[in-house]
Design a protein around this nucleic acid. Structure first.
Length: 881
RNA sequence: GGGCAGUUAGCUCAGCGGUAGAGCGGUUCGUUUACACCGAAUUGGUCGGGGGUUCGAUUCCCUCACUGCCCACCA
């Protein structure tokens, strides 16, 4: 193992923490030393996470930063808890997205389409692109500090993985769960492929409801009025439908109407599906272009007339004047023609929901086509696993969303008319198209067969991710995985399907916990998107604030599964916190070397030391509890508050009395306590800010019992002992600190500049006031605090009652008896009010009877405290005259 | 049309049955030998409206309002 040489701090070292070089240095060291490598033969208990594989075309977004930082935190803490950790990385081939990117490039640079190249050549291009430009995001994740086992990076189109995908297809086919059929699917006229229901996004549209009329064949001169939003499909109408109970039209059922163009007689049918209330209560039935219409067509044996080409233009069945016309142009043209024929009754504005293709962002076209479908496997086991808590969803409410989807499953359209993807392992016999060969290997007499040209939906490969990324030995050690961290937006696409695949193909759940993060939005609450340009570049933020800064900033504002409004200020806070820690360590270093083990054996502690150690003890307990509930923001908040406020603002400032004082033993004690705290705190913070903590750990020369490697990232997770005498210390320290706050306030009120040293007088009311007067004086920036039990203040000298006693500020010329009288009287009024409140509460019998005794006790104590304070204030008031 | 979240200080958010919190912002002071990416003090809230349960409600229940998200074949 290589020796680590820490950079020694010196007074020349920069006052501000400069993350760039530190972060890159440590990341390189960790990699060199194999710190991220998972060993399946280890005797330590295993812990594993698989990364939600980002698209190979992807670049890092803030969403990725949050998501992967959370995974990194979990992985790093698990290592410190003594687990053998596997965080398995990789990328997704992302069928449509990647194909589109390469096609666009081809068009731009060579003015060619993929068809110009042909399938084989095009795929070669995609692979070339993938090798060259794919996986940028992997590099970006490294810059963020992700401790993935990069040696195990997987891609969903790796040879072995692809084979597994095809095997799964064959297996499901043989089980009768996969079938081919001509069905109504969601067709994207831009990507020219079928899509699953999940890839369709419903959007509210402002459109027009056209009222038109068809003449009844059997009763010339009588017209049926029909409302439609899609007149361009009327050429594909093969019936009109009314509700069987609709009295208005009962007599017409079984008769016919004239479809105006191409002119034809079509029947009037009765169907339960019709909503009597909507429009005119008459529906034009276009079985080829609407899912509901298709079903009506099935029930009534209607012809499905497909009037659209795959690209969304109309075909010759629509008639010569429409053939070749784009669908939305045709809508206007059809309406216009109806108007000319006198068949358009009216047009009215209408809002309805239209399905859009998630990728291409155009309205999808319901289209009848031959596709492969999957009946989901292991549904009941999967549903049960989440319902019973065998797989825990956090926040829990997502379990309901999952449950709802799982109980309303529709068969999954898994074929895609793309080239980039896993080719469906099916061959059709050239002589006899009904003969199929379904296997991973092509048939022996391959020349007599043609392979299916469609590929599989990308999610049909990603659902195997938690186990197909692992070899046998790895699986034995690390499967099922422990935590999955992902966004709720892919709960159906990915999470639910992985659960089903896990049970179906491994007989086990694929993971035990799923943590759903929130979505990161901009300050206006909008989704981050490329088109809005409101998505900050995380790498720029890293350059500006450091990886640790962005990690900490984001973690601290990421609530449990709630959406997050992003504000760069929050990242700035992360950077500032890093700087604070850096400087606190620097301060400690300025007073000599630290003890590596930072033990407090046999060290006599000041009350301030005892108090901060007690707080550290509490902190560790709280952090552990918060980890147990995945409350990352709370962990961040606790660490921040403890360090900045309790440690830096109070403890270090108080300890300066001893550190800068003459008592060698006392100084050594305070420094040892700082070492103790820093040693533990760096370990606690390491998962959040790994680079900085590792740097300081090395600089300070700390050691800790560890789990194999001489890095902080392998140091044991800290435990803290509650110090002896914590309660007494806390009481004393709190009295001092409270007195400090009051004294500082007094200074400010009397307008003494913060840097001006002044002399105070204290009439002590506690026996130990003398012992703490030095620290007290330091904290209030006093020249002196003279203790004088018999002190007679000049009338009008600024004064305040503190827990240490009456405090006076003898100032030349600033004596104002009226002001002091006012101040005291205001204070007295406040106390009187407090006492009244407490008294009222205590005199309420129901309160005393019903409230928990601890609460009642607290009120009693409070009453006593206030009463004491009041009597002292009154005495001071009398003395003032 | 169903379901789920959210509504707390000017802004972003914690708290979720016992005296309203943080950060940022504002105001005032500060070259106090770690840190101006800092320190101190201070300002600022009938905890969305209305009911109810309770000795007590920002916290639990009901209801309404608005905001956001998910699901759903009303053309």
């Amino acid at each position: 193992m290589r020796k680590i040489t820490p950079i020694r701090m010196s007074s020349e070292i920069s006052k501000a923490y400069e993350p760039q070089s530190v972060e890159e240095k440590w990341y390189a060291r960790w990699l060199e030393e194999g710190c991220f490598t998972a060993d399946p033969t280890s005797t330590k208990p295993g812990y594993s996470i698989v990364i939600p594989p980002p698209n190979v075309t992807g670049v890092l977004t803030l969403g990725h930063v949050l998501n992967n930082t959370l995974q990194d935190v979990l992985a790093r803490r698990a290592r410190m808890l003594g687990k053998e950790v596997l965080w398995l990385p990789g990328t997704d081939h992302a069928g449509i997205a990647t194909q589109t990117v390469v096609e666009r490039k081809l068009r731009k640079e060579e003015h060619k389409t993929r068809r110009d190249l042909g399938r084989e050549a095009f795929l070669e291009r995609v692979w070339e692109w993938k090798e060259k430009h794919g996986g940028i995001i992997i590099q970006q994740l490294k810059r963020l500090g992700c401790s993935c086992d990069w040696g195990r990076e997987r891609f969903t189109m790796d040879a072995g993985y692809s084979r597994a995908v095809q095997q799964v297809f064959v297996e499901l086919y043989n089980k009768g769960l996969i079938y081919r059929g001509k069905r109504m699917v969601n067709w994207c006229p831009v990507s020219l492929t079928a899509l699953s229901d999940e890839e369709v996004i419903m959007k509210a549209q402002k459109g027009t409801l056209y009222h038109m009329r068809y003449e009844v064949v059997e009763e010339p001169g009588r017209f049926l009025e029909i409302a439609t939003t899609r007149p361009e499909t009327l050429m594909g109408d093969s019936a009109v439908a009314v509700h069987p109970k609709d009295e208005r039209y009962k007599s017409l059922v079984g008769k016919h109407v004239w479809r105006p163009f191409p002119r034809a007689q079509i029947p009037i049918v009765a169907d339960e599906h019709i909503d009597i209330e909507f429009g005119t209560g008459v529906l034009k039935v276009t079985p080829a272009h609407d899912k509901a219409d298709f079903e009506i067509g099935q029930r009534h044996g209607l012809e499905a007339i497909d009037v659209l080409n795959p690209d969304g233009t109309l075909n010759e069945l629509a008639g010569p004047e429409f053939a070749g016309m784009e669908r939305f142009a045709a809508r206007k043209a059809a309406a216009e023609k109806l108007r000319e024929l006198g068949l358009l009754v009216k047009e009215e504005p209408h809002q309805n929901n239209v399905g859009y293709s998630e990728r291409a962002d155009v309205p999808i076209e319901p289209r009848l086509s031959e596709q492969w479908f999957l009946k989901y496997p292991s549904v009941e086991a999967s549903r049960q696993a989440v319902a019973s808590g065998e797989i825990a969803f956090r926040p829990e409410r997502w379990a309901n969303v999952y449950e709802h989807w799982m109980t309303n499953l529709q068969d999954w359209c898994i074929s895609r008319q793309l080239w980039w993807g896993h080719r469906i392992p099916v061959w059709y016999h050239k002589e006899d198209a009904t003969r199929l060969h379904v296997a991973v290997e092509p048939p022996a007499d391959e020349a007599n067969w043609t392979q299916e040209i469609d590929v599989l939906d990308t999610w049909f490969s990603s659902w195997l991710w938690p186990f197909e990324t692992m070899d046998g030995a790895t699986r034995a050690k690390f499967y099922p995985t422990d935590d999955l961290v992902t966004g709720p937006d892919i709960i159906f696409f990915w999470v639910a399907r992985m659960i089903m695949a896990g049970y179906e193909f491994t007989g086990q759940k694929p993971f035990s916990n799923v943590f759903f993060t929130g979505l990161i939005r901009d300050m206006q609450g909008r989704k981050m998107s490329k088109s809005l340009g409101n998505s900050p570049d995380p790498l720029e933020l890293i350059a500006k604030y450091g990886a640790d800064g962005i990690r900490f900033g984001l973690l601290r504002i990421a609530p449990q599964g709630q959406d997050i409004r992003f504000d760069e200020k929050q990242i700035e806070e992360g950077r500032n916190f890093a700087n604070k820690l850096w400087n606190a360590a620097r301060f400690r270093q300025m007073h000599g070397p630290s003890a590596p083990d930072a033990s407090l054996e046999g060290v006599a502690l000041s009350c301030y030391s005892t108090e901060i150690l007690a707080r550290l003890h509490t902190l560790i307990a709280e952090v552990d509890a918060a980890y147990g509930e995945y409350r990352f923001n709370e962990i961040g908040q606790r660490l921040y508050d403890f360090f900045w406020s309790d440690y830096c603002d109070w403890y270090v400032e108080a300890a300066k009395t001893e550190i800068l004082g003459a008592d060698g033993a006392a100084k050594a004690s305070s420094l040892a306590v700082m070492d103790y705290i820093l040693n533990r705190f760096l370990r606690l913070l390491a998962p959040f800010m790994p680079h900085l903590c590792e740097e300081l750990w090395a600089t300070m020369g700390f050691r800790a019992p560890g789990h194999g490697k001489p890095f902080l990232m392998y140091a044991a997770w800290p435990t803290a002992e509650a110090p002896q005498g914590a309660a007494a210390a806390r009481e004393r320290v709190e009295a001092v600190y409270q007195s400090v706050r009051l004294a500082r306030n007094l200074r400010a009120e009397v307008r003494i500049p913060s840097n001006k040293k002044v002399g105070f007088r204290l009439k002590p009311q506690v026996a130990w006031a003398e012992e703490e007067s030095g620290t007290f004086a330091r904290l209030i920036n006093a020249e002196t605090v003279e203790l004088d039990a018999a002190y007679q203040p000049a009338s009008g000298e600024p004064r305040v009652l503190t827990p240490l006693g009456e405090l006076y500020l003898p100032l030349e010329g600033a004596v104002d008896a009226d002001a002091e009288r006012d101040r005291l009287e205001k204070e007295i009024a406040k106390v009187v009010k407090e006492i009244e409140t407490v008294k009222r509460k205590l005199s309420n019998e129901s309160f005393v009877r019903n409230a928990p005794s601890a609460v009642v006790e607290e009120h009693r104590k409070r009453e006593g405290d206030w009463a004491d304070k009041l009597s002292q204030l009154r005495k001071m008031r009398e003395a003032l005259g």
